[in-house]
Simulated assay, not measured.
Amino acid sequence: MEIKEATAVILCGGKSRRMGFNKALLTIDGQFVLAKSAQHLQQLFPKVVLMTDQAGHFAGQAAFRELVIWEDRYPACGPLGGIASALEQITTPYAFVMACDMPEQPLAAISALAAQGSQSQVVLYQREGRLEPLFGFYHQSCLPIFQKQLHQGQRRIKQQFSQLQVTKVATEELLFTNVNTPEELSHWQKAEGMG
């Protein structure tokens, strides 16, 4: 089922210090994980966008030629800058935001999250008491608060959640895996090979 009220935005910034190279260009079995993620999300969303600090990262790569790429308007401000940039540019009420280092995108979990929050400004999963701010929905009405945070040098996404309508959807499942280090990448590749 298509989620027409949202644009999917994959955040491709970050320094990737622990990985040692740009995670947006991570490949598994010769395929760009990011391009595969975008294609996967196209099953749910009418528009999928890559948000990056430099569009030049993807120049000349055939895998990204058909994808929409936006440049972050708040470079060096972390994920919150990417979210604010997305909210400034989307034409849908919501942005579904996720990080680029998630090799798997559980579409059923995304759909279930979308079904929870038609009246909310932010809709996120909460696992073991911890919110997952880089896998959730943000309404355009969050933008003024996020812009104010950025202008004040506050980069924590959750910093001003008390001023927003936030729906927290409890889950006990580990819905996705982040790949942050070469060791995690190796572990994930082995798990994939066994699957």
Rank of each mutant, 00 (worst) to 15 (best):
L143P: 00
P79V: 15
P79T: 14
F45M: 02
Q189I: 11
V49T: 03
Y138P: 02
L107M: 10
E183F: 12
I90R: 05
K36P: 15
K23Y: 05
H40D: 07
Q39T: 09
R18D: 12
K23G: 10
Q119A: 14
T171G: 04
L11C: 01
G14Y: 01
A95C: 05
Q119C: 13
R17C: 12
L124R: 02
A38V: 04
I69H: 03
L174S: 13
D29W: 05
G78M: 03
Q89L: 06
A170T: 10
E183P: 13
R155K: 12
L150V: 08
A99H: 13
T7K: 03
K190D: 02
E173C: 10
M102N: 14
C77W: 14
A109F: 09
V169Q: 05
Q42N: 09
F64I: 02
G82W: 01
A112C: 11
Q160D: 15
A59V: 06
A24R: 01
D29S: 07
L134W: 10
L185M: 10
V123I: 11
H151N: 13
Q61L: 09
M1G: 13
Q105A: 07
C12E: 03
N22G: 11
A99D: 13
N178T: 12
R130I: 14
P182M: 00
Q89Y: 08
Q163E: 14
S118K: 10
L41T: 00
K158Q: 15
Y74A: 06
F135A: 03
T167Q: 14
Y125V: 04
F176Y: 07
A63N: 07
A112D: 09
Q42C: 08
R73L: 11
L41E: 04
Q31N: 14
P46W: 05
E5F: 00
L143G: 05
F21T: 11
D101T: 10
H139M: 08
Q163N: 11
V166G: 02
L174I: 11
L50V: 03
A62V: 01
L143H: 05
N22C: 11
F176T: 03
R65F: 12
L150N: 08
